[in-house]
């Protein structure tokens, strides 16, 4: 059966909204009856991308974060965008353990977590303009 649904929200770049964002996405995806494991994979990946927008994109300063989620058949597409500082070297940024902020006790594992928990992770970024993370997960429970 063909299924389709979509939602978009925007919220301020504040650490309080990390939990908000992952809960909203989980609530939206729940209509597909995912397993608990699939749901927690998605929540963790969303948390990573939103946290990166807050810490790295806007460097804990003001800004808006744009989140879109689309359900298509058994596929969940998630897009998380900031209009912050952008990434110079995306390949390096996605390497496990690479972090530009070790002084904040970051471990450099955010992108690795996203890539492990989702089926597809793509990053587009322009220095000075911002970053968009595209992710897709196929739900086997559907």
């Amino acid at each position: 059966m063909q299924y389709e649904n979509e939602m978009k929200i925007e919220f301020m770049s504040k650490s309080q909204n990390e939990a908000f964002a992952r809960v909203v996405v989980a609530a939206f995806v729940s209509q597909l009856d995912p397993t608990l494991e699939e749901l927690s994979d998605i929540k963790t990946a969303v948390s990573e991308a939103v946290t990166n927008a807050v810490i790295h994109g806007y460097e804990n300063g003001p800004g808006m974060i744009y989140l879109a989620c689309r359900l298509e058949g058994n596929e969940t597409y998630i897009e998380i965008q900031d209009k912050g500082k952008g990434i110079e070297d995306i390949k390096q940024a996605m390497e496990p353990l690479y972090t530009s902020k070790p002084e904040l006790e970051r471990s450099g594992m955010g992108f690795t977590v996203m890539e492990t928990f989702m089926d597809v992770v793509e990053v587009r970024s322009i220095p000075g303009e911002g970053t968009t993370v595209y992710m897709m997960k196929r739900l086997h429970s559907v």
Binding site: S40, T44, S47, T51, E105, R106, S107, G110, V113
Partner: peptide, 10 residues
Amino acid sequence: PFMDSSGIGV
């Protein structure tokens, strides 16, 4: 019930 990479840093 939940931890992301921030917890690894901690």
